[in-house]
Write a protein that binds this DNA or RNA. Structure first.
Length: 373
DNA sequence: TAGGCCATCTGGTCCT
DNA sequence: AGGACCAGATGGCCTA
């Protein structure tokens, strides 16, 4: 599906206004073949233009016959200078067909100035609109899984993750049962770039005590709602794996399943009710960790040294912007103030500024209650 | 230096 | 008439 960034943002905006559009998201996108924009002016030029006043806003508002709104905004200064403002006679030479519609008026300095002012106002409105849009996007970043103040998801990744998140939650509500965790993770990461996938999966991976499971070694068979989706599509990069029994592949980078294995493991934690333990994954119980805002985080007991060592196997997140947060990150995960339930960040060298959300929205509460009922 | 991401400008279109 | 929306173009910044 072709997904244009701006189109995606617009779609998101409209989705908030019209949730009924959600089923049409998949149809949304595509490139518009259009052209014809003038060169953008530099910021210095823009600042210079901003020094212009509005004294001409109300001057000379008399228009010719018909609407001229478009021509006023759309570069009226390009119109012919030799067309008289009051000329209502024939336009153009005899060979060309006569043009209908409003006459082009001569650009007087005053009108030129008005055009500039109008353009400035339009630019200011557009800036405000985009700022509002970005603000909404920031709010969206805060409610999708994996929020990082220092490592913001890009716009497109935020939208993709939000779409996946909505889809995952919809599936949960539709099925009325606890989801298969790996499928849940898969759904969240579907279509995301590798860095974002690593980020999301890394957020889900808090416990590596039983990092490599049989499922991992043998290849996890996922219960995915979308058969075409395969975890093999996400070559997660793992770090600090050399000392573990994760060497199932020929290289570190071959351990692409580990993060999801850990994420998978992470959900099935001790402290949860027995029915929470998947039949597919009940060999061990790990300290409770969150998967996203819909899952609570509790850790009932201090980590054992082994468990702490296990965190050394945290997946490496290849961030989008390099060194900003690539090292010494841990995960802050869990309800604020839940000291015993939070994983010590010092044990989590990655993702220290990354955490799952716990926005107490009604949907959150409902789902959280659902998962802990 | 290429590529990704972003902010901004710009002109076109639609709607009120 | 004017604002909202859209999408292309452009340049800046950053990272690999």
């Amino acid at each position: 599906m072709a997904w244009h960034k701006s189109s995606g943002i617009v779609m998101l905006t409209r989705l908030f206004k019209e949730p009924s559009l959600l089923p049409d998201m998949q149809k949304f996108g595509g490139w518009v073949d259009d052209s014809g924009s003038e060169d953008s002016k530099t910021k210095d030029e823009e600042q210079e233009r901003c020094r212009l006043g509005d004294e001409d806003l109300d001057e000379g508002s008399v228009k010719g016959g018909g609407s001229r709104a478009q021509s006023e905004i759309a570069g009226e200064e390009d119109y012919d200078e030799d067309v008289d403002e009051d000329d209502c006679g024939e336009e153009g030479d005899g060979d060309r067909p006569k043009k209908r519609g409003p006459k082009k008026r001569k650009m007087t300095p005053a009108r030129l100035e008005r055009s500039k002012v109008r353009r400035q106002k339009a630019n200011a409105r557009e800036r405000t609109r985009m700022h509002d849009l970005n603000s909404a996007l920031d709010n969206l970043r805060k409610v999708v899984p994996c929020y990082s103040k220092t490592q913001k998801l890009s716009k497109i990744e935020t939208l993709r993750l939000a779409k996946n998140y909505i889809w995952a939650l919809s599936e949960i509500l539709r099925n009325g049962k606890r989801p298969d965790v790996v499928s849940y993770v898969q759904t969240l990461c579907k279509g995301l770039s590798q860095p974002t996938t690593n980020l999301v999966a890394g957020c889900l991976q808090l416990n590596s005590r039983n990092f490599l499971t049989e499922q991992c070694q043998e290849g996890v068979r996922f219960h995915t709602p979308t058969p075409s989706f395969s975890i093999q599509s996400y070559p997660y990069q793992c770090s600090r794996l050399s000392s573990t029994n994760c060497q199932s592949g020929s290289s570190t980078h071959s351990l692409r399943n580990h993060s999801l294995c850990s994420a998978y493991e992470a959900l099935y934690t001790e402290g949860t009710s027995p029915e929470y333990i998947s039949a597919d994954f009940e060999g061990h119980h790990s300290p409770p960790v969150c998967v996203n805002g819909n899952f609570g985080v509790r850790q009932e007991e201090p980590l054992s040294p082994d468990a702490e060592r296990g965190y050394q196997y945290s997946m490496h997140y290849t961030n989008l912007h390099g060194s900003r947060s690539s090292a010494a990150h841990g995960i802050t995960c869990g309800p604020p103030g839940a000291r015993s339930g939070s994983v010590h960040s010092e044990n989590l060298p990655l993702f220290h500024d990354v955490h799952m959300h716990h926005d107490r929205t009604p949907a959150y509460e409902e789902l959280n209650a659902f998962f802990h009922s």
